[in-house]
Amino acid sequence: MPYWLMKSEPDVLSAATLQRLRQARWDGVRNYQARNFLRNMQADELFFFYHSSCPQPGIAGIGRIVRTAYPDPSALDPHGPYFDARASAEKNPWSAVDVEFVEAFSDIIGLARLRSIPELAQLPLLQKGSRLSVMPVEAGEWAAVLALR
């Protein structure tokens, strides 16, 4: 089963908020490669929930995909932050998935700690210039991160 890492700014959607809500739509992805990864996700696949653009970036927990990709409605909301004037109800290039909470880590696993693990050397998150908000995680990388919690 493929594994994933998905980034969100905690003030937009945090692991704690997902825990409270139980389920949420993961939307607003506006990079074609990240969107394609969303489109490859299948129900029941797991992802690391990564907090980004915050005082303590890092992996905060685990979520699960509960609904596969569908047209992202946030692209059609002219008052929303993810509006895309090129998108329409008939032709929406963006996708969203629905996710559910699985687990919160007692401590966020920060970038410095992730970088110190040799098994994670090829993790896309740790590659120079990698800014994707959605990316695959290999099974060995998944296990190495789980060993850190």
Rank of each mutant, 00 (worst) to 15 (best):
117 I>H: 00
60 A>L: 09
133 S>M: 04
94 W>P: 10
93 P>F: 10
66 V>S: 09
103 E>S: 09
103 E>F: 01
92 N>F: 04
59 I>Q: 02
92 N>D: 03
132 L>A: 06
84 D>E: 11
135 M>W: 08
59 I>H: 00
119 E>S: 13
136 P>V: 08
88 S>D: 14
136 P>H: 11
77 D>N: 14
118 P>L: 04
86 R>Q: 14
118 P>N: 09
116 S>M: 00
136 P>W: 03
83 F>V: 13
79 H>E: 15
93 P>W: 10
125 L>E: 09
65 I>P: 05
76 L>Y: 07
89 A>Q: 13
59 I>K: 02
62 I>C: 06
103 E>Q: 14
71 P>G: 06
89 A>I: 15
136 P>F: 11
75 A>H: 05
128 K>S: 13
82 Y>D: 13
85 A>E: 11
79 H>Q: 15
107 D>P: 02
74 S>V: 06
70 Y>H: 12
109 I>P: 02
129 G>C: 02
102 V>A: 06
82 Y>A: 15
60 A>Y: 02
59 I>Y: 04
107 D>N: 12
116 S>I: 09
87 A>H: 08
66 V>T: 10
133 S>N: 05
100 E>G: 07
115 R>G: 05
81 P>C: 10
80 G>L: 06
69 A>I: 06
124 P>A: 10
131 R>T: 10
102 V>E: 10
120 L>K: 01
125 L>V: 13
136 P>C: 10
58 G>Q: 09
